[in-house]
């Protein structure tokens, strides 16, 4: 018997009215990104969104062209929305439990680009592999 089988029925209700405010904040962040090149982020974990609010928000944002799946200490998904520059980022732990969720308004989400230090050590490793060939 899993936790999901315990017959606890939640009366979670419908839309609370919070989600449209999030949509407006996204528009504000997107405007800052286009005008000043400043990236922004909204931490969904800290917002009192009901499951219905979350579904509404996902519907409003739609899907874009890119979806990135990462396996880094549990699964993570970075999904581009229908609005370029707006990304839905969700992190799960090793047990598949959602640990944090963000909307990132940026050209490329933070987790995607390689870090210069890592590139440097990668180059060192590659050179060492090449020297082993000879």
């Amino acid at each position: 018997m899993s936790l999901g089988d315990i017959p606890i029925q939640l009366e979670v209700g419908g839309l609370t009215g919070s989600a449209p405010a999030v949509l407006r904040e996204i528009a504000y962040l997107l405007e800052r990104l286009t005008r000043y090149g400043e990236a922004g982020s909204i931490d969904l974990h800290g917002l009192p969104l009901s499951p219905a609010d979350r579904r509404w928000l996902l519907d409003q944002l739609g899907r874009g062209e890119i979806e990135i799946a990462l396996e880094i200490g549990g699964g993570s998904r970075i999904v581009e929305t229908a609005y370029p520059g707006v990304w839905w980022v969700a992190h799960d732990n090793e047990q598949g439990v959602r640990t944090s969720e963000f909307i990132e308004v940026t050209l490329i989400p933070d987790l995607v680009p390689a870090h210069p230090d890592d590139v440097e050590s990668g180059l060192k490793n590659l050179k060492s592999r090449i020297s082993d060939l000879s």
Binding site: S41, H45, G46, I72, G73, S100, F102, D110, L111
Partner: peptide, 25 residues
């Protein structure tokens, strides 16, 4: 532990600590 794993962990920890996402970075 890769840097990305570490960054993901920090993002979650910063969220739990109610740090604004910019401060989280």
């Amino acid at each position: 532990v890769s840097r990305r794993t570490f960054m993901k962990y920090c993002a979650t920890l910063a969220s739990l600590m109610a740090l604004p996402p910019a401060v989280g970075r």
